[in-house]
């Protein structure tokens, strides 16, 4: 019931969205949907995505007791993945916010 728990929950939501966004950008198909051309810096994006998902799990653990936190985290993952997929389908340029540098870059995969 501690009040600032919503801050942690919000942080968890944001880092899940960012985490899945980065993981999607690490895939060549989606990178091209967002940036038009080029090759993604795959390793960096994957690492970022992994860290962000881990961070969201930690934020969930800070917000609620462990048994609840597991549920919140898993459901956040379930809800966020389609959100990223729909963004890629209809408004891919929004994902540039997560990684604005792209298009001309061609770092080794």
């Amino acid at each position: 019931m501690a009040e600032p728990s919503w801050v942690w929950t919000l942080a968890a939501v944001l880092s899940t969205v960012a985490g899945f966004g980065w993981l999607a950008l690490a895939m060549a198909v989606h990178w091209q949907q967002v940036h038009g051309s080029g090759v993604p810096p795959r390793r960096a994006l994957r690492a970022l995505g992994g860290v962000a998902l881990l961070a969201s799990a930690l934020c969930c653990a800070m917000a609620d007791r462990a048994s609840m936190a597991v549920l919140v985290w898993l459901m956040l993952l379930a809800g966020t993945a389609p959100l990223i997929a729909f963004t890629l389908a209809w408004r891919p340029q929004l994902l540039r916010l997560l990684w604005p540098w792209g298009g001309r870059r061609s770092s080794p995969a």
Partner: peptide, 13 residues
């Protein structure tokens, strides 16, 4: 339980 975000995520699920 009292957790509105989780409730809405259940609806999404």
């Amino acid at each position: 339980f009292r957790h509105w975000l989780l409730r809405w995520l259940y609806v999404v699920g």
